[in-house]
């Protein structure tokens, strides 16, 4: 009973950094309950949101992610007591930095999903995928990856083909 999957022109690449105790379990629950959600999301499991370093989010965007989701236990549920409290502050500050540098914050979504909230996981992933799909590919980091210093550039065909491949 798969819902009819329309052929979309742009399939966003979503990376999800999740904590293994709550959100991963929630995603697992969504799976075992046969809930459907877009397959654009690639899930990376971490012991805690406190372990999710802002440089991972930066690296995800650099390697071609169009949207990043960071999700973990609700405050108070953390297996390590204070992991998500620290993460909360860290991500609040990191968001401001990315915003100041010019990254569109709609591509970065944070959420608390507990092990029982399979539905909420599906909802968060679907919302983010549709939002990013409507925004189109994230070109900032992709174009930046092709920029060269003036002295090192030679007009290689590879460079040209890479430019128009974005």
């Amino acid at each position: 009973m798969h819902p009819e999957k329309q052929k979309h022109t742009f399939e966003p690449k979503i990376i999800a950094f999740v904590c293994t105790w709550c959100t991963y379990a929630g995603a697992d629950l969504a799976g075992t309950s046969r809930m459907q959600y877009p397959s654009n999301v690639r899930v990376l499991k971490f012991p805690c949101t406190g372990r999710i370093d802002p440089v991972f989010i930066l690296k995800a965007f650099q390697q071609g992610a169009d949207g990043v989701l960071v999700s973990g236990c609700h405050p108070g549920d953390c297996h390590y007591i204070a992991g998500n409290f620290h993460a909360r502050r860290r991500f609040a500050v990191f968001r401001k930095l990315l915003e100041f540098v010019g990254v569109d914050l709609n591509r970065l979504q944070f959420s608390w999903v507990s092990a029982a909230e399979g539905g909420k996981w599906v909802e968060v992933v679907t919302d983010l995928t549709e939002k990013v799909r409507s925004m189109g590919p994230m070109t900032e980091f992709k174009e930046l990856a092709l920029e060269e210093q003036w002295s090192g550039t030679i007009d290689t065909p590879e460079l040209q083909e890479a430019y128009n491949a974005i």
Binding site: E148, Q149, S151, G152, T156, E158
Partner: peptide, 13 residues
């Protein structure tokens, strides 16, 4: 020197 010894250049892919 940068015109001959660039700050960064590809030498192979």
């Amino acid at each position: 020197k940068e015109a001959f010894f660039p700050v960064c250049e590809d030498i192979m892919s």
